[in-house]
Each structure stands twice: as structure tokens, then as C-alpha cells.
Nucleic acid binder design. Structure first.
Ligand SMILES: [Mn+2]
Ligand SMILES: [Mn+2]
Ligand SMILES: [Mn+2]
Ligand SMILES: [Mn+2]
Lengths: 219, 219
DNA sequence: AATATAATTTAGACAAATCTAAATAATATT
DNA sequence: AATATTATTTAGATTTGTCTAAATTATATT
């Protein structure tokens, strides 16, 4: 199965959007890939032909087992390269996505398995997202919840839901990164803002919009 | 100047074939890129339009200053990735070319400069070929000659002319790699074969075909 | 100089990936 | 149920990179 870069990008987007959902819409894919719905319909026909998606017109799109297998390979490559960029080349977590978006299309099993080994077979990427192994399996990890829904007082940052550079840079500025321990000081009902404290720093307040996108685990 | 992968591959091939030559032929490029002369003519028109090559029909092709600048960037990326694969991911020098052929097209100045730094700013790749710096300059190195033309008795392997997997695997098998010190025991005029000796190993003889492709420097 | 051979270009075609504009189907609103 | 809105598909076009077959130009051989 020899896929083009465009086909790989579609497969990955469908995988990302499917998450739970039975089926993904043409428009959702178009928006995700910054393209037009008509282009998605064209590609849907090709991917169906290759048996990577189930698709009947007007009925939405979903990955076949083979499509999912391929999606997981691409996700693995993407996230491993992100690890490489952050851990070995000292990139910041807000700079790596675009570059990994290209590196993920270099197809060589040997390359990616060696890279994984070189990085110590990491199981999460710089945004806290899990990295599937060579067989497409995720190692079991603690379930994450967003900071706005958490109830414990002490929490550890373990991921970000929104991965826009805007949010990541904001978190950089506030000293919030993966592994950061946070104490919840107060929750304000009025606007759902949260007052938090990190180590020796003075407490500060973050908006609901931010707390919804910080994924945490209890210690 | 935003180039496609195909355009980058053409630019790099032209750079490689030009080497000394005033001009490169349509057929030579087609052969190098494993494509058809008609396709080369088509691409020549596009690259001329973008002012990356000088081209008048039937008169051959040569890079402009801008074309050469871009070629050197691609060569730099290719060779740095080869270094990475060999030094960090333990690939053998005969396995890295195809993978680097893809990695070289990931365009990010920051990426490539960080990678160079991570590798200790190497000046030669795993085949002994020089790596231009970010400004496209080569550091001066000792002039290499092929083993069949060398006169000194003790020599050091510093490169390979032919970089086919066939030759590289042969050299692996014989224990000849970059940095290997060779003593020339005898040169046989009949078939221009050369008897050589490496360290503690018994002497052995290599054909002219091989010795022509081993690039050496005196110590 | 005439002819043969080799190199190169042109003409016309195709596949991939995209687009716009128009048509059609599904869904929501009155 | 009729109508309006939204989602999706189709039709037709464009760009990029490639190809084959035929035409043209350059070079070599007699
Ligand atoms: Mn991508
Ligand atoms: Mn990530
Ligand atoms: Mn390449
Ligand atoms: Mn090389």
C-alpha cells in the first residue's frame, strides 16, 4: 500500500476527528485540512477504492481496520519526531508541530524504530499525547481530565487539549509545562476562572478557556 | 522561492553532474533521476522561468548563482541527515542514501542548523563528502585522490567515489571504512590490481575497479 | 556532401490534487 | 407540509509532473 503525502494527511485527520464518533463529516475534514469539501469528496472516493475508509455518499466517513492501522503508524512517526525535536534539538513544544507534519511522511520502518530506540522508546510526546508502539498499541496510562473538571487540590500537568502555538506560548510564559505541579487555590463560580499556584511562585488566575485545555492527572 | 520536491531533486542532480563541466545534458539528468529526457526538457523550462538555471534549447543546462545556492542547501541537508542516521541511529553507510533523499526535502533552516549543531557541525558525511555550512561554504580539506593513482605507501581512506550499495557492502566486508589506514604492498601492472594490508589482518588484493573508487589522503 | 545515428524537443495524453460554481440531498424552521 | 438553510456531491477546470510517439536538430560516419 503506497500512499501519497496527501492521502496520509487525510487518513491522519480522519483518525483524529473520528475519536469515539461513528463517522466523520466531509466539512469537518475540509476544515481540519484547510481545504474545500469538494476536495474531500474526491479524496474519499480514492480512499474508499483503496479500502482505507468506509464511505457511502452523504453518509459520512470512517476508517477501516487497515486505515486505522496506517493512521496509527503516521501518528507514531509524527509524535516520535516531535520528541526528537524537543529532546535532542531543544525546540520548544510550540515549534515542533509543523516540522513533524513533514517528517512524518518519510516512510522507513527501520528509521522510525531506530529513532524510537534512540529516544528511549517514549510513550508520550511533548504535548502529552500517547505514542503507539510499532504494533499500533498504546501503553495504558492514567486517564487525564481537564483542569476545569478536576476536583483534587494538587494536580500534575500531563497534556494540552488545544495545541495552538497561542496557547502553548501562553503556558510557556506562565511557567506551565508537562510535569508541572499545580495547587488549586480557588475556583470562581462567576466566570469559572481558577486561581492556581506553582511551587514558589505567587498564585495567579487563569480563565476557563485556559483551564479547559490543560489536561491533568492526580498524583 | 518555494520549490517542490521534484524541483529540488532536479537542482541537486544538476549540481552534482555539473562539477567542473560548463553544462549538463538533458540525457545525463534523465539518467541520473531515472526519468525520461522529455520530462527533463519540461522541467528545464520551469526552472529557467524561476531563474535557477541557464538554458537555451539544445545548448545544455547549468545552474545560475541562485540555483547553486539552493543546491548547496539541499546537499547540506542531505549530508547532515546521513550523518545523523549513521552516528545517532547506527545505520550503515550503505543504508542512508535513500532515507536522506527524502529527509533532505524537509525545509526548515532552524531544523537543519540545530541538527548540525547536535551533530557537532560535521564537515564530511559518512561517505567522505564535504558538508557546506549554512552559508554554502566548504571548509578547506586535503585534496583526495583515488587509491589507484596514489603513490605513497601508507594511506588513509577518506571517501568513496561510487556510492552504490554494492561497493559499500563490499568495503564493509573487507573491513574498509572511512579512517581505515591502508598499506600498499604491491601494484600489479597486468590488471592494475593492488595488494593492500590493513592493521593486523593478512594482506589481500583488490581490483582496479575497486581501487579507482576508494578515495585516499596521505597521512 | 550525403546519410546514419544520437540527442533533444514538441505534441498530446494522463494521473494526482486541488479549485469554483452549480446541482442535489439532508436537515431545520416556520 | 412547505420552505429555508446547510451539507455534500458533481461537473468542469487548473497545476504539476510525468509519459509515449513523432518531429526536429546536432553530431558522426561514410
Ligand atoms: Mn503531514
Ligand atoms: Mn504532539
Ligand atoms: Mn530527494
Ligand atoms: Mn553521502
Amino acid at each position: 500500500m503506497n500512499l501519497t503525502v496527501a492521502e496520509e494527511n487525510y487518513i491522519k485527520s480522519i483518525y483524529k476527528l473520528q475519536d469515539g464518533q461513528a463517522v466523520v463529516s466531509t466539512n469537518a475534514i475540509a476544515y481540519e485540512l484547510d481545504t474545500k469539501p469538494a476536495s474531500v469528496t474526491d479524496m474519499a472516493k480514492k480512499l474508499k477504492e483503496k479500502k482505507l475508509i468506509d464511505y457511502e455518499k452523504y453518509q459520512g466517513i470512517s476508517l477501516t481496520a487497515e486505515g486505522k492501522r496506517i493512521a496509527l503508524q503516521i501518528v507514531r512517526r509524527h509524535r516520535l519526531w516531535e520528541c526528537f525535536l524537543v529532546e535532542k534539538l531543544s525546540f520548544s513544544w510550540n515549534e515542533v508541530h509543523e516540522i513533524a507534519e513533514e517528517l512524518e511522511h518519510v516512510r522507513s520502518e527501520k528509521l522510525i524504530n531506530r529513532l524510537s530506540e534512540f529516544l528511549g522508546n517514549p510513550t508520550t510526546d511533548p504535548h502529552g499525547d500517547p505514542i503507539p508502539d510499532a504494533q499500533g498499541k498504546f501503553s495504558k496510562t492514567k486517564q487525564l481530565i481537564s483542569l476545569d473538571k478536576a476536583t483534587a487540590r494538587r494536580l500534575e500537568v500531563a497534556g494540552v487539549a488545544d495545541q495552538s502555538s497561542a496557547l502553548l506560548e501562553f503556558l510557556n510564559a506562565k511557567g506551565i509545562r508537562l510535569g508541572t505541579q499545580i495547587d488549586v487555590i480557588e475556583r470562581y463560580e462567576f466566570d469559572n476562572s481558577v486561581e492556581i499556584k506553582i511551587r514558589n511562585q505567587p498564585a495567579f488566575t487563569i480563565s476557563e478557556q485556559v483551564s479547559k485545555n490543560i489536561m491533568v492527572k492526580t498524583l
